[in-house]
Nucleic acid binder design. Structure first.
Lengths: 241, 241
DNA sequence: TATTGACTCCTACGTTGCGTAATAGTTTAG
DNA sequence: CTAAACTATTACGCAACGTAGGAGTCAATA
């Protein structure tokens, strides 16, 4: 039988934590002395080992409790689910890192809220559908959109907006300037990678849509400066010739 | 001037959040009506935009406050630091994912606490040093150990232990069995990748150390079953001939 | 004008996993 | 037997809000 101090020293778990695990019923001590001191035996220690194992994998304590208490719990299934969860978190972080890098290089400080609004994205998708109908490109978009988490999607749209921000900073140049044309290519590549294969045909249609004066135009101009949408459309038009 | 409701609908930020940002001083409204209603103007909205931007990058609110309030704050430096932080988190998750995968395949349910104890790791390192002196391998270890975060190191040790767990499950086989020998190679590769280049010479020395009856032997046996250390040492000896 | 419905305010508890006192009783070594 | 070391319980603190409750406000309708 070991006291809290001994258990703590052996396992590295703090005394407070042991007390806490007792109060939440995760790891009740084997018995108490008359004075109320907690005493743990080997069985309790094994349970603690289990707890530490799952805690290491970032399971929340409540889940750990149900997992360990369930007599015939499917360990592997829980592990797989947790792996999935961790993977999603990882991807989220990867997205954020890319986003932060781009923010740094473009030096944005204004960004339209609608860009952050996921519901608007579907609106754009619907508009695109109106223009293109049930083309293979639209199907591809829907597929990618449904496969990827909305989180990944959201950040993809944000990064797309950052490309327009770069357009915004080139407005003093001519639309056929080399740097501007390169930017158009970056746009095309980005769309191809994250939404659907973007041929020059489609890009042309997009350019027209950007400058058509609708919500898309507004959003671009608000995020990247007034006139950016039209400017980008011009550059796109030249690029697609 | 916009009310909380309007701001909320425009930005997707909840009313409660706006109230909260007011109480913590992050985003005080431009003014209050006589009735105490919060009113926001364009300047406040821009500030909110900034806040959302940094929040997206998982900056804590307190930092966001200091960042935005500092008149000549080095944005890029803050972004770089945040990128680093996010990268560390990502690496941690990658480690955990690998750990979880290995746990799943090996089916461990016992793991010695000392394995989780970082302080012991340095002890092993010191022992290794006694055996090898200031060899280039030891220098390599120290370099890798200092470069990698202690977190990554810790999980590397855990995964090393899992390799011994697999040894433990092969104890009924002969040490020169093909599967066992393959396991030795896996051990060698793992050490090479995560600690230092592990030649057969060094591996031989390690094998002797594992079976020498010291703390290392105890830890291996406790984590992977009694007799595992000796068994692994035999297999290693054969492998190194 | 009174009422209704929509909106807003503030207060305050719940969440997660403990850290950190503060106060008081217990055990052990000298 | 006393002091040192250990333990217990209680309870606040943190991060970033969600949620609920009670009450005052605003705009429009009956």
């Amino acid at each position: 039988m070991m006291t809290v101090n001994e258990v703590s020293k052996l396992t590295g778990v703090s005394i407070r934590t042991l007390q806490y695990y007792d109060t939440i019923g995760l790891l009740p001590p084997t018995e108490y002395t008359e004075a109320g001191y907690r005493l743990y035996d080997d069985t309790a220690m094994e349970r603690l080992q289990q707890i530490l194992l799952f805690k290491e994998l970032e399971f929340p304590l409540k889940e750990i409790k149900t997992i360990i208490d369930a007599p015939n719990f499917d360990r592997n299934k829980a592990l797989e689910q947790q792996i999935e969860l961790l993977t999603m978190k990882k991807e989220h972080l990867e997205n954020l890192i890319n986003f932060a890098r781009k923010i740094k290089t473009t030096g944005v400080n204004k960004m339209d809220f609608n860009v952050f609004d996921t519901t608007k994205m579907d609106e754009y998708a619907r508009k695109a559908k109106e223009q293109w109908g049930e083309t293979p490109e639209y199907k591809e978009y829907k597929e990618k959109a449904s496969n990827q988490s909305s989180d990944t999607q959201k950040i993809a749209w944000q990064n797309l907006m950052l490309i327009f921000v770069e357009f915004g900073k080139m407005k003093d140049k001519s639309p056929d300037d080399e740097a501007v044309q390169l930017q158009v290519k970056k746009l095309q590549d980005y769309i191809s990678e994250h939404f659907y294969k973007c041929s020059k045909e489609i890009l042309k249609g997009l350019g027209a849509m950007y400058a058509s004066g609708g919500e898309f135009t507004e959003n671009i101009d608000r995020a990247a400066g007034i006139g950016t949408a039209v400017f980008a459309a011009k550059a796109i038009e030249i690029y697609c010739r």
